Amino acid sequence: MEITVHIKDPSPEFERELLTLLNKHRASLRHNPGWNTERARTFYDALAPRAQRILRAALAGDDGEVSANDLRDKDDTSLRGHAGAFTRTLKRGATEGWWDSGMQSPIIALGPGSGKVQGYKLRDEATRQAFLSALENTATQK
């Protein structure tokens, strides 16, 4: 049997009792922190348009990567602020209960760690497949 529970705004007493019960049965609980089609679609729909563009471009690449140069509208225009939406959407999803707070961003910035971003890459092949499935019609519509 599989049970999924979503509770919005529980009372402090109810939350305490539920967490105590879950903790008591921790060994039989399964946690799924990965991206699936439903989560991928929700994440994409909540993103700002510039971040959606980055994600679609990464999906279009065979290896799940897109270079920064391919994303620039003009030579050497900055991509500053484009990827902040990924972090905000990830945090919002955890707050809204769309996924656990332990979810990792589906896309990571490539580069030296400081300075200009050299591109973006989908986290792994399973994440790429979840987003491809979720957006199979979207990529052709935009």
Rank of each mutant, 00 (worst) to 15 (best):
E38K: 11
G81M: 04
L110M: 07
G64V: 03
S101E: 14
K142H: 13
R50N: 15
R41G: 07
P112L: 13
M103G: 05
G64Y: 02
A126T: 04
A57Y: 02
G113D: 08
A94F: 01
L22A: 00
L55V: 05
A51R: 07
H31F: 12
G102M: 12
R88V: 14
P33G: 03
R26T: 12
Y120N: 04
T127E: 05
V5K: 03
L47G: 06
L135V: 04
D62T: 13
S101D: 13
A57H: 05
A139L: 15
P106W: 08
R80V: 13
R128S: 04
A46M: 07
D70C: 09
S101L: 09
D62V: 05
T20W: 06
F43W: 04
H25T: 10
A48Y: 11
N32L: 14
N23E: 12
S101W: 13
Q52H: 03
Q52G: 00
Q129D: 07
W35P: 02
W35G: 08
H25K: 09
E13G: 08
A94P: 00
I107T: 07
L47H: 01
A109Y: 09
R72L: 12
P33E: 09
G84V: 02
G93R: 04
N32S: 14
L122Q: 02
R80G: 13
R123H: 08
M1C: 13
G61P: 05
T77C: 14
N69W: 11
G84C: 02
P33Y: 13
L90R: 15
L29F: 06
F131H: 02
K91F: 14
R123Q: 05
A85H: 09
S133V: 08
R80N: 09
G119Q: 04
W99K: 00
T87L: 15
S105H: 06
T20N: 13
L135F: 03
Q129F: 02
I7A: 00
R80T: 13
L90E: 12
K8R: 14
F14I: 03
K8A: 15
E13P: 08
T4W: 00
L22Q: 04
T4N: 11
T138F: 12
Y120C: 06
A57T: 08
W99L: 05
P33F: 10
T140Y: 08
A139T: 12
G102Q: 11
A27C: 08
R123V: 03
R128W: 00
L59H: 02
R56K: 08
A130N: 02
L19I: 09
L29V: 11
L71A: 01
S114G: 12
Q118N: 06
K142F: 12
E13C: 06
E13L: 11
N36F: 07
H82W: 15
K24D: 13
T42C: 06
V117W: 09
G34A: 10
H82R: 11
H25E: 10
R53P: 01
T20I: 09
V66A: 03
G119D: 03
E2T: 04
N32R: 15
R88K: 12
A83P: 01
R88D: 15
A51L: 02
